[in-house]
Nucleic acid binder design. Sequence first.
DNA 1: GGATGTGAAGTAGTTCACAGCC
DNA 2: GGCTGTGAACTACTTCACATCC
Lengths: 244, 244
Amino acid sequence: MATPRLRPRKLSEPTIARLPVYQRIAESWTSHGLNRIDSQQIGELAGVTATTVRRDLAGLGSFGTRGAGYDVRVLNERIAEALGHDRQYDVIVVGIGNLGRALVNSTNFLIRGARLAALYDNDPDVVGTSIVGHVVKSLDEPIVPATVAVICVPPEAAQAVADRLVSAGIHALLNFAPQVLNVPIGTAVHYVDFSIELQILMYHLNNGTGPLGGGLLHSLGIATPTPTPTLTPTPTPTPMRGAL
Amino acid sequence: MATPRLRPRKLSEPTIARLPVYQRIAESWTSHGLNRIDSQQIGELAGVTATTVRRDLAGLGSFGTRGAGYDVRVLNERIAEALGHDRQYDVIVVGIGNLGRALVNSTNFLIRGARLAALYDNDPDVVGTSIVGHVVKSLDEPIVPATVAVICVPPEAAQAVADRLVSAGIHALLNFAPQVLNVPIGTAVHYVDFSIELQILMYHLNNGTGPLGGGLLHSLGIATPTPTPTLTPTPTPTPMRGAL
DNA sequence: GGATGTGAAGTAGTTCACAGCC
DNA sequence: GGCTGTGAACTACTTCACATCC
């Protein structure tokens, strides 16, 4: 009986958030021609303990080799599989202000199956303009079918926009507005709130809560515990050009 | 003996992330002339249970009134105190691309004591230009003293920038680059990674993990359990103008 | 009556420590 | 020898349930 993969049992929330980080590490190693990595190395690069890495990966089925770590290509594959990167899905962005524009122009945002389907705004100066190959539509126009909607409107408008998106059949929202949304059961909302992140940082600074955990990865200062010569496959000449 | 406040014992990480949300709710009620709120109402507006709200607030000292909830003004005050909003602190932003620009132009980012101290970039086309009253400095210039640095550079440049900031004496970093940073112990790093948020959302969609938790607040669909007439103090006419 | 504040129970996540396999 | 995978212990957070006080 072959490995019974697919439907890799339910993963915990923190695990899901860490997988994309492990995957980035795997890709970086692949692109540097390396093909084995162990939990210790992943842990150092991701800012978590080796045990946590092993538990997370064990949840994707046992594909590591005792004594030799993980095959980087398989690691990447298994994570992609677990996160559903084989499927493509459509994303729309509502609110084409500075942030909306920054997101759609970013090479780091719409990746791994995400495909930009449409842009919406209600500012007459913006509607009709073209951005990354899409003409910004008015919110009065019908909402195109999509899997996820990204909300980048001011907080006062966020609830109304969310209502409209939900009734258009979109049940996954990524909300950048500092506003908790009231949505029907069955709709997923994720919040990204910049100022809250800053405030958390300040709390720890004020209270000297030394190590301090955080955003996604808590990443306390990892001071490269093992005196590994160079962990990053190649330190990359750091071009330091352009900006996100 | 008066209430022994200040040094309100250590708060848990999830609690700290929720306090800013409660505070926003308190401010909204204040601005609508309301001055009492109970844990049930806060919970519905914040997307968490009433018990969680009470536990969180109990950690700030007992200032609620049994039978009558919390005084909105005191609530706001206590949270501000706990999060250190009395102090002002300087923030610098490194990497003035689309995202950096969006952040400094946002009215929702640098709030509650945060004060923009300087902007840095290394693109000659950007250095010297003026944004929100600040001339963008070159990264070759000395780093001004600041409490927090916001990193908005491409991932390849992030580690080098972080090293520079740390050696300039900045020990709190808010990193928007999809790159885990290696910093000395004693330096706090928080990560905001847009694409990871999208990926988490997709995981849940693919796996039908119904309720689904998330970003900061997990906020599963709250379908206004109690048939409260209108919880938002006044539904606000939703101007829906402009964008973040 | 009504809502807070909190022990006690329950649930989730992490870390330890080691058996098992290469 | 070295590193994975996992039971068992531990720690953290949430939820229950109720005594307490306005």
